[in-house]
Design a protein around this nucleic acid. Structure first.
Lengths: 331, 331
DNA sequence: GCCTGCGCCGATAACGTTGTCATATGGAAC
DNA sequence: GTTCCATATGACAACGTTATCGGCGCAGGC
């Protein structure tokens, strides 16, 4: 910038004015400066700008795994909102590891991001308190923050699952299995609650062996299905607590040569092309990302008020309901 | 940092030393400094550090759409490599818009990223020359850079398609349709070449109406299929130039109530569960990302030498080959 | 002719780090 | 006791911007 000033025969500050489109520069001078910029291939160093201004025009997104379609859709929506606000986006995957989440988040803070969007892996976010006090905005998505009061955008996990299970019940199913994720995960626990609620509401008391809650794993899913399908009164339907479980269950069912009426939480690409079609409780990851990002930027623009908790409804997408086999005789 | 120094009764520089684990600080002093850091909730401002050191420990990734599974898998691999090298990752989606690609790239450069990984949307990357001269490393992925000589990691698009089409031919197909993306896209053009090559090699001369090259769009795919399936000699097999086309074709075929032997470029989640199974020419996006990122960091570590061009082989994943209907009698 | 106000521009001080060099301190060697 | 070296610490400049403020020229009103 100094070189540009020298070449254009003006002061540093004048170059700065031109670069930032500030008023108070004669067109002639501005033109000379622009020519010098062009000639020298000058580009402003945003690091220095950040240092001086205190605002970085960037936000950080911490999620579980950018490779997962659910999160990548969410990420894309966040990026679009950030772009509209002239912000760049840092992304990082925590792999569901609280330590890594913390590392990533603090690394973003050290870069002085203006705000954070976090899909929590940790149950304790008090480590963020100094940052928040220092002015960083944070919005949590998919799961609430741990031990601190913060904005959060959620899906109606319990209600959605309830609706999905009721759908199965209304189609005549009585023996319905449930495979969910690790119960330590917030969403997994809530969805499971939706299942037990819907079953209880219908006066059904599922066997203990029909519920499996564990990190998705082919062997475990296969074993769970084997148990559920054994004996004289096997399950006739299955609810899967997330898309990874759904995929594993479909694959293992195919391997076992069995089919079940299946409802899954989270939509799947191609779900409509499978036979039988898979009914799903769909979240809208893009909408979640959009809403969270917009809330973040409202906070950054100075919007006050207490922490918000926004819960989005899920949508039951019925596919191939006709395929759901009615309860076989004998029950 | 000044405050920390004051509270610990030491000079600024000593705090800096402690923060950076530099040698030459008595354990006692270091402990006092650490206590002050803890008490004040101090965290180093990396913007200032960047300004001073000239290295940002961050890289930028410009891709077409982070929401697309192919790119998100690639992105995840890049992130992992970056993490191993202590770097953070900026990501941005260009939406196949050259202007947006340029904007994003230059914004990353203004933040002084150490390096760039770019999936090009533009045919002219001369705008990067000043940046590269200034020391930014750049590796291109999936498509080569335009008008400049730069490292690039590619798939064997032509060879992969050739192999996929030959697979169909070996299974007895003679009338094979091709639906690809906009021929202006590098990969789309090369894949199409693989199709024409394989057909010619087998002495087949496909009708013009059996090839459609255009941005994926449901209506257009449906129309293309209608034409290909009309008349006394309809196509018996179809090659789809990328996963978006494959999905559209599957959907439209289902709507038309027809099935075709289908081979697609790019793998699909759940492709194994469809009936008939979909044979694909699989790229490994994670591998591409990993290799590109590792090359980038080698360049950043000072590795010289001419620009590299790395071409990765594709893998033909046969699924449900039994389902491929042999050429009907009459031909 | 002098003062006032306004529009353009420049000098200088920050922003929060780190690199360089100088200084203090203490112990070992003579 | 003096010299010397090593080690711990500090003062200060520099990184590349932007904010503040002041100066300078020029037009207009008395």
């Amino acid at each position: 910038m100094k070189d540009v000033a020298a070449r254009a025969g003006v002061a540093l500050k004048t170059v700065s004015r031109v670069v930032n489109d500030e008023p108070g520069v004669t067109p002639g001078t501005a033109e000379r400066v622009r020519a010098a910029i062009e000639a020298l291939g000058f580009r402003r160093n945003d690091s220095a700008r950040v240092l001086r201004k205190g605002q970085t025009a960037s936000i950080g997104l911490v999620l579980e795994d950018i490779g997962d379609p659910f999160y990548s859709a969410l990420s894309r929506a966040v990026e679009d909102v950030a772009h509209r606000h002239g912000s760049l986006l840092f992304t990082g995957s925590s792999d569901e590891d609280p330590l890594r989440e913390r590392e990533l988040t603090l690394a973003f803070c050290a870069r002085r991001v203006d705000g954070l969007i976090i899909i929590p892996a940790s149950a304790d976010h008090t480590y963020l308190l100094p940052e928040i006090a220092a002015g960083v905005a944070a919005v949590f998505v998919d799961r609430p923050a741990g031990m601190i009061d913060a904005d959060v955008v959620l899906s109606d996990n319990t209600g959605g699952t309830h609706q999905g299970v009721r759908h199965l019940i209304e189609h005549g199913h009585r023996r319905i299995g449930y495979i969910g994720d690790d119960p330590g995960i917030y969403t997994a626990a809530l969805r499971h609650r939706g299942y037990t609620g819907a079953m209880a509401e219908a006066g059904l008391s599922p066997r203990e062996a029909w519920t499996v809650m564990a990190p998705p794993d082919p062997a475990r899913v296969r074993e769970a299905l084997t148990v559920m399908l054994a004996g004289p009164d096997p399950v006739t339907a299955l609810f899967c607590g997330n898309n990874r479980v759904t995929v594993l269950a479909l694959r293992e069912l195919a391997a076992l040569g069995r089919t079940l009426s299946l409802v899954g939480f989270d939509d799947l690409e191609l779900a409509d092309l499978l036979t039988p079609g898979i009914t799903v409780v769909a979240q809208d990851p893009a909408e979640m990302g959009r809403i969270a990002a917009e809330l973040l930027f409202r906070r950054l623009a100075g919007e006050g008020g207490p922490a918000q908790r926004i819960e989005l409804v899920t949508r039951l997408v019925e596919r191939g309901s006709g395929e759901i086999t009615p309860e076989p005789p004998g029950n």
